[in-house]
Design a protein around this nucleic acid. Structure first.
Length: 269
DNA sequence: GCTAAATGTTGAT
DNA sequence: TCAACCTTTAGCT
Protein backbone atom coordinates (compact mmCIF):
# COMPACT_ATOMS: atom_id res chain seq x y z
CA UNK A 1 0.00 0.00 0.00
CA UNK A 2 1.77 2.93 -1.41
CA UNK A 3 3.04 6.34 -0.46
CA UNK A 4 5.08 8.49 -2.82
CA UNK A 5 8.31 6.52 -2.47
CA UNK A 6 6.59 3.29 -3.57
CA UNK A 7 5.09 4.98 -6.62
CA UNK A 8 8.48 6.35 -7.60
CA UNK A 9 10.02 2.90 -7.23
CA UNK A 10 7.35 1.43 -9.47
CA UNK A 11 8.00 4.11 -12.08
CA UNK A 12 11.74 3.39 -11.93
CA UNK A 13 11.07 -0.31 -12.35
CA UNK A 14 8.88 0.26 -15.40
CA UNK A 15 11.45 2.58 -16.92
CA UNK A 16 14.09 -0.08 -16.45
CA UNK A 17 12.22 -3.08 -17.79
CA UNK A 18 9.40 -1.85 -20.00
CA UNK A 19 10.27 1.57 -21.38
CA UNK A 20 11.62 1.85 -24.91
CA UNK A 21 9.89 -1.34 -25.95
CA UNK A 22 6.77 -2.27 -27.86
CA UNK A 23 4.12 -3.27 -25.38
CA UNK A 24 1.46 -5.93 -25.62
CA UNK A 25 -1.47 -4.73 -23.53
CA UNK A 26 -4.55 -6.56 -22.35
CA UNK A 27 -7.20 -6.36 -19.68
CA UNK A 28 -7.83 -9.95 -18.51
CA UNK A 29 -10.43 -8.70 -16.05
CA UNK A 30 -12.15 -6.76 -18.81
CA UNK A 31 -12.55 -3.37 -17.19
CA UNK A 32 -9.85 -1.63 -19.24
CA UNK A 33 -10.28 -3.37 -22.56
CA UNK A 34 -10.60 -0.15 -24.56
CA UNK A 35 -7.61 1.46 -22.91
CA UNK A 36 -5.50 -1.65 -23.39
CA UNK A 37 -6.42 -1.67 -27.07
CA UNK A 38 -5.35 1.98 -27.38
CA UNK A 39 -1.82 1.29 -26.15
CA UNK A 40 -1.36 -2.22 -27.50
CA UNK A 41 1.51 -2.31 -29.99
CA UNK A 42 2.83 1.10 -28.92
CA UNK A 43 6.24 1.84 -27.44
CA UNK A 44 6.22 2.89 -23.79
CA UNK A 45 8.28 6.10 -23.90
CA UNK A 46 8.53 6.68 -20.16
CA UNK A 47 6.66 6.21 -16.89
CA UNK A 48 6.45 9.32 -14.73
CA UNK A 49 5.64 9.52 -11.01
CA UNK A 50 4.08 12.62 -9.46
CA UNK A 51 3.02 12.26 -5.85
CA UNK A 52 0.98 9.06 -5.76
CA UNK A 53 0.10 9.22 -9.45
CA UNK A 54 1.71 7.28 -12.29
CA UNK A 55 1.67 8.32 -15.93
CA UNK A 56 2.71 5.92 -18.67
CA UNK A 57 3.50 7.97 -21.75
CA UNK A 58 3.33 6.05 -25.02
CA UNK A 59 4.99 7.07 -28.24
CA UNK A 60 2.39 8.40 -30.61
CA UNK A 61 0.20 9.99 -27.98
CA UNK A 62 -1.72 7.94 -25.48
CA UNK A 63 -1.01 8.24 -21.76
CA UNK A 64 -2.31 5.86 -19.12
CA UNK A 65 -2.99 7.39 -15.71
CA UNK A 66 -2.79 5.00 -12.75
CA UNK A 67 -3.61 5.66 -9.12
CA UNK A 68 -3.40 2.66 -6.83
CA UNK A 69 -5.55 4.09 -4.07
CA UNK A 70 -5.64 2.10 -0.87
CA UNK A 71 -5.92 -1.36 -2.39
CA UNK A 72 -4.21 -1.20 -5.74
CA UNK A 73 -1.23 -3.38 -6.53
CA UNK A 74 1.32 -3.38 -9.34
CA UNK A 75 3.32 -6.55 -9.71
CA UNK A 76 5.95 -7.23 -12.31
CA UNK A 77 8.66 -9.64 -13.29
CA UNK A 78 10.77 -11.05 -16.04
CA UNK A 79 10.36 -14.25 -17.95
CA UNK A 80 7.13 -15.88 -18.95
CA UNK A 81 4.20 -13.91 -17.43
CA UNK A 82 2.15 -16.03 -15.03
CA UNK A 83 -1.37 -17.17 -15.87
CA UNK A 84 -3.49 -14.12 -14.90
CA UNK A 85 -5.22 -14.90 -11.62
CA UNK A 86 -7.82 -12.72 -9.96
CA UNK A 87 -8.82 -9.34 -11.31
CA UNK A 88 -5.94 -8.16 -13.49
CA UNK A 89 -7.11 -4.80 -14.81
CA UNK A 90 -4.11 -4.21 -17.04
CA UNK A 91 -1.34 -6.52 -18.16
CA UNK A 92 1.65 -5.27 -20.10
CA UNK A 93 4.19 -7.55 -21.72
CA UNK A 94 7.30 -6.07 -23.34
CA UNK A 95 10.37 -7.98 -24.32
CA UNK A 96 10.82 -10.53 -21.53
CA UNK A 97 9.24 -8.33 -18.84
CA UNK A 98 5.63 -8.06 -17.70
CA UNK A 99 3.48 -5.97 -15.37
CA UNK A 100 0.05 -6.60 -13.81
CA UNK A 101 -2.25 -3.98 -12.29
CA UNK A 102 -5.04 -4.89 -9.86
CA UNK A 103 -7.46 -3.08 -7.60
CA UNK A 104 -6.44 0.43 -8.60
CA UNK A 105 -8.72 3.36 -7.88
CA UNK A 106 -7.80 4.80 -11.26
CA UNK A 107 -6.64 3.27 -14.52
CA UNK A 108 -7.63 5.45 -17.44
CA UNK A 109 -6.48 7.06 -20.65
CA UNK A 110 -5.74 10.71 -20.06
CA UNK A 111 -5.00 13.57 -22.45
CA UNK A 112 -2.60 16.51 -21.93
CA UNK A 113 -5.24 19.06 -20.81
CA UNK A 114 -6.53 16.58 -18.23
CA UNK A 115 -2.99 15.93 -17.05
CA UNK A 116 -2.49 19.66 -16.64
CA UNK A 117 -5.65 19.93 -14.53
CA UNK A 118 -4.55 17.05 -12.36
CA UNK A 119 -1.02 18.34 -11.83
CA UNK A 120 -2.35 21.81 -11.06
CA UNK A 121 -4.10 20.51 -7.99
CA UNK A 122 -1.05 18.72 -6.60
CA UNK A 123 1.36 20.36 -4.19
CA UNK A 124 5.14 20.01 -4.50
CA UNK A 125 6.49 16.43 -4.52
CA UNK A 126 9.58 16.05 -2.30
CA UNK A 127 10.94 13.43 -4.70
CA UNK A 128 11.07 15.85 -7.61
CA UNK A 129 14.06 18.10 -8.01
CA UNK A 130 11.93 21.01 -9.21
CA UNK A 131 9.65 20.98 -6.14
CA UNK A 132 9.26 24.25 -4.24
CA UNK A 133 8.68 23.88 -0.47
CA UNK A 134 7.53 27.51 -0.27
CA UNK A 135 4.49 26.63 -2.37
CA UNK A 136 3.45 24.28 0.42
CA UNK A 137 4.36 26.84 3.05
CA UNK A 138 1.99 29.40 1.49
CA UNK A 139 -0.93 27.08 2.14
CA UNK A 140 0.24 25.89 5.54
CA UNK A 141 0.99 29.35 6.89
CA UNK A 142 -2.45 30.70 6.11
CA UNK A 143 -4.43 27.70 7.31
CA UNK A 144 -6.20 27.10 10.62
CA UNK A 145 -6.28 23.38 9.80
CA UNK A 146 -4.15 21.04 11.91
CA UNK A 147 -0.70 20.37 10.46
CA UNK A 148 -1.44 16.64 10.75
CA UNK A 149 -4.36 17.12 8.38
CA UNK A 150 -2.49 19.46 6.02
CA UNK A 151 0.29 16.90 5.51
CA UNK A 152 -2.30 14.43 4.21
CA UNK A 153 -3.68 16.95 1.74
CA UNK A 154 -2.15 16.29 -1.69
CA UNK A 155 -2.76 19.93 -2.65
CA UNK A 156 -0.28 20.88 0.08
CA UNK A 157 2.40 18.19 -0.41
CA UNK A 158 2.13 15.44 -3.01
CA UNK A 159 3.21 11.93 -2.07
CA UNK A 160 3.01 12.07 1.72
CA UNK A 161 0.73 9.44 3.27
CA UNK A 162 -0.19 8.28 6.72
CA UNK A 163 3.18 6.79 7.67
CA UNK A 164 5.32 9.75 6.60
CA UNK A 165 2.83 12.13 8.23
CA UNK A 166 3.13 10.51 11.66
CA UNK A 167 6.88 9.92 11.51
CA UNK A 168 7.74 13.37 10.18
CA UNK A 169 5.72 15.13 12.89
CA UNK A 170 7.44 13.06 15.55
CA UNK A 171 10.94 13.64 14.21
CA UNK A 172 10.33 17.38 14.47
CA UNK A 173 8.43 17.11 17.76
CA UNK A 174 5.46 18.91 16.25
CA UNK A 175 2.01 18.65 17.82
CA UNK A 176 -0.16 17.10 15.08
CA UNK A 177 -3.09 19.28 16.17
CA UNK A 178 -1.14 22.53 15.79
CA UNK A 179 -2.84 24.83 13.27
CA UNK A 180 -0.73 25.29 10.15
CA UNK A 181 -0.59 29.04 10.75
CA UNK A 182 1.16 28.44 14.07
CA UNK A 183 4.00 26.36 12.63
CA UNK A 184 7.25 28.28 12.26
CA UNK A 185 8.58 28.70 8.73
CA UNK A 186 11.96 27.48 9.91
CA UNK A 187 10.35 24.29 11.24
CA UNK A 188 8.56 23.70 7.98
CA UNK A 189 11.74 24.14 5.95
CA UNK A 190 13.57 21.60 8.08
CA UNK A 191 10.57 19.22 7.87
CA UNK A 192 10.68 19.53 4.10
CA UNK A 193 14.42 18.83 3.92
CA UNK A 194 13.88 15.82 6.15
CA UNK A 195 11.03 14.60 3.96
CA UNK A 196 13.28 14.79 0.90
CA UNK A 197 15.90 12.68 2.67
CA UNK A 198 13.43 10.17 4.12
CA UNK A 199 11.53 9.67 0.89
CA UNK A 200 14.70 9.31 -1.19
CA UNK A 201 15.85 6.65 1.25
CA UNK A 202 12.42 5.05 0.91
CA UNK A 203 12.86 4.86 -2.87
CA UNK A 204 16.24 3.19 -2.36
CA UNK A 205 15.21 0.64 0.27
CA UNK A 206 11.55 0.13 -0.55
CA UNK A 207 10.48 0.79 3.02
CA UNK A 208 9.93 3.66 5.39
CA UNK A 209 12.66 3.83 8.02
CA UNK A 210 12.69 6.90 10.19
CA UNK A 211 14.38 6.01 13.49
CA UNK A 212 17.72 7.73 14.12
CA UNK A 213 20.60 5.44 15.04
CA UNK A 214 20.80 6.76 18.60
CA UNK A 215 17.14 5.94 19.21
CA UNK A 216 17.34 2.37 17.98
CA UNK A 217 17.11 -0.46 20.46
CA UNK A 218 20.08 -2.17 18.86
CA UNK A 219 23.26 -0.59 17.54
CA UNK A 220 23.75 -3.02 14.69
CA UNK A 221 21.92 -5.38 12.41
CA UNK A 222 18.84 -5.02 10.27
CA UNK A 223 15.86 -3.24 11.72
CA UNK A 224 12.92 -5.43 12.51
CA UNK A 225 9.65 -4.45 10.94
CA UNK A 226 8.42 -2.83 14.15
CA UNK A 227 11.65 -0.94 14.68
CA UNK A 228 11.45 1.11 11.52
CA UNK A 229 9.33 3.93 12.97
CA UNK A 230 8.88 6.06 16.09
CA UNK A 231 5.11 6.20 16.33
CA UNK A 232 3.31 4.62 13.37
CA UNK A 233 1.18 1.73 14.68
CA UNK A 234 2.96 1.87 18.03
CA UNK A 235 -0.08 2.95 20.06
CA UNK A 236 0.17 1.84 23.70
CA UNK A 237 3.92 1.16 23.37
CA UNK A 238 6.52 3.35 25.05
CA UNK A 239 7.96 6.26 23.07
CA UNK A 240 11.50 5.42 21.92
CA UNK A 241 12.68 8.78 23.23
CA UNK A 242 10.79 9.50 26.47
CA UNK A 243 8.91 6.30 27.30
CA UNK A 244 5.44 7.88 27.28
CA UNK A 245 2.70 5.72 25.75
CA UNK A 246 2.13 6.44 22.07
CA UNK A 247 -1.40 7.58 21.35
CA UNK A 248 -3.66 7.16 18.35
CA UNK A 249 -6.71 9.00 17.09
CA UNK A 250 -8.42 9.29 13.73
CA UNK A 251 -7.48 12.46 11.86
CA UNK A 252 -8.67 12.98 8.28
CA UNK A 253 -10.18 9.48 8.25
CA UNK A 254 -6.80 7.86 8.95
CA UNK A 255 -5.20 6.71 12.15
CA UNK A 256 -2.80 9.30 13.49
CA UNK A 257 -0.08 8.22 15.93
CA UNK A 258 1.90 10.55 18.19
CA UNK A 259 3.74 10.89 21.48
CA UNK A 260 1.75 13.20 23.79
CA UNK A 261 4.94 14.20 25.63
CA UNK A 262 7.44 14.76 22.82
CA UNK A 263 4.71 16.33 20.70
CA UNK A 264 2.91 18.17 23.48
CA UNK A 265 -0.01 20.48 22.68
CA UNK A 266 1.25 23.70 21.15
CA UNK A 267 4.66 22.27 20.30
CA UNK A 268 5.69 23.93 17.05
CA UNK A 269 8.95 22.09 16.55
C1' DG B 1 -10.88 -20.80 6.34
C1' DC B 2 -12.86 -16.36 7.87
C1' DT B 3 -12.86 -11.43 9.22
C1' DA B 4 -11.21 -6.96 9.79
C1' DA B 5 -8.08 -3.61 8.69
C1' DA B 6 -4.87 -1.40 5.66
C1' DT B 7 0.33 3.58 3.61
C1' DG B 8 -6.02 6.70 -0.75
C1' DT B 9 -9.19 9.43 -3.43
C1' DT B 10 -13.66 10.71 -5.31
C1' DG B 11 -18.23 11.99 -5.45
C1' DA B 12 -22.70 12.12 -3.22
C1' DT B 13 -25.27 13.74 0.86
C1' DT C 1 -19.29 13.03 6.87
C1' DC C 2 -19.88 8.81 4.50
C1' DA C 3 -20.10 5.20 1.06
C1' DA C 4 -17.84 3.28 -2.79
C1' DC C 5 -13.96 1.60 -5.19
C1' DC C 6 -11.83 -3.51 -4.83
C1' DT C 7 -7.44 -6.27 -3.12
C1' DT C 8 -4.11 -8.16 0.05
C1' DT C 9 -2.71 -9.53 4.47
C1' DA C 10 -2.53 -10.07 9.50
C1' DG C 11 -4.63 -12.25 13.01
C1' DC C 12 -7.84 -14.99 14.40
C1' DT C 13 -10.43 -19.53 14.37
Amino acid sequence: LPEGHTIRRLANLQNKFLAGRVVTASSPQGRFTGGAAAIDGHVLRTTEAVGKHLFQHYRGGPTVHIHLGLFGKLTSGTGEPPEPTGAVRLRLVAGHAWMDLRGATTCELIDPPEIAVLLARLGPDPLRGDADPLRAWKRISRSKTAIGALLMDQKVVAGVGNVYRAELLFRHRVDPFLPGARLREETWMSMWADLVTLMRAGVRTGRIETVLAEDRPRARGALKRDEAGYVYRRQGLPCRVCGTEIRTEVMVARNLFWCPHCQAPGNAG
